[in-house]
Nucleic acid binder design. Structure first.
Lengths: 109, 109
DNA sequence: ACATTAATTCAATAAATGTTGTATTATTGA
DNA sequence: TCAATAATACAACATTTATTGAATTAATGT
C-alpha cells in the first residue's frame, strides 16, 4: 500500500458513522449488506449513508455488487489488511519487529 | 481502545503531512525530535507543523517533553499499538482470527 | 403502463479543517 | 537587561467535509 492510499483509507475510517458502517460490513461477512439494512441498523439517513458508503468505496475499503434493485456492500478485507500492514510496518520502522511485519497483518481477512 | 479514541487517532493520521511527521518520529525512536528539526526535515512551516503536532498530541499519538527551550516530540508506541489492536480486532470480527488479534499488534512498540 | 421500492444525485447550507502572517511566551547567552 | 532562538497562539481566510431536503434513475411487481 502506498502513502496516499493509506491516508485515504485512514480518512475514510476517521468518522464515527463510517467506522460503524465498516464494522457492520465486517460483521456481516462475505454476504455484505444493503444500504437499506445498514440505514435501519445504524439509524442514519439514506442519502447521508449513501455519501459515506461512497467515501468508503472511493477509499477502496468496500466493494459494491448490484443484485436486482439492491446493492450489496462488502468490506474489502484485502484492502483493510493492506492498511494494517502499512501501519504495522511504519509503526515499527527503526524498531525490532520489521521481520514480523508481514506476518502480523490479518491473514484471514 | 474505545471507538472515539480510534476515530481520533485515525483522523490524526489521515493527513499526508501528519502521517509523515508521525513516521519521522517513529524512525527517530525514543530520543524524539524537536519541531525545528522536523520542520527542516519535512519542509513545513513552523506554525503549520505546530498545529499538526498539536493534533497528533491531542489524539494521543505523540508525547511532549520540554528540555530547555526545545520540545521533544516522541511517537507514543503504546497508543499506536492500541490503534492497531482495535483495527485488527474489528477487521476480523466475525472472522476466524479473533484468537490471534492480541498477538498481532506490534509488540515491540 | 403504473405505482412502489432501492438507491443515488444534486444544490444549498452548515460545520470542521488547514494555512498563512503576525504577535506572544519563554528560555538562553552575551 | 537585551537580543536571539524555540515554539506556540491567535485571527483571518480558504478549503474541505458533512448534512438535509428535493429530485432523479432504475428495477420490480401488479
Amino acid at each position: 500500500m502506498k502513502e496516499d492510499q493509506a491516508v485515504s483509507a485512514l480518512g475514510a475510517l476517521a468518522h464515527t458513522q463510517r467506522l460503524r458502517v465498516f464494522r457492520a460490513l465486517v460483521v456481516a461477512g462475505p454476504e455484505g449488506l444493503t444500504p437499506s439494512v445498514l440505514a435501519d441498523q445504524l439509524d442514519v439517513a439514506r442519502n447521508t449513508l449513501s455519501f459515506h458508503l461512497k467515501e468508503l468505496a472511493h477509499a477502496g475499503l468496500v466493494t459494491i455488487e448490484q443484485q436486482g434493485r439492491n446493492l450489496f456492500y462488502r468490506a474489502d478485507f484485502a484492502h483493510m489488511n493492506g492498511l494494517l500492514g502499512y501501519l504495522t510496518e511504519h509503526c515499527c520502522q527503526g524498531g525490532v519487529c520489521e521481520a514480523n511485519a508481514t506476518s502480523r497483518a490479518c491473514t484471514s481477512c
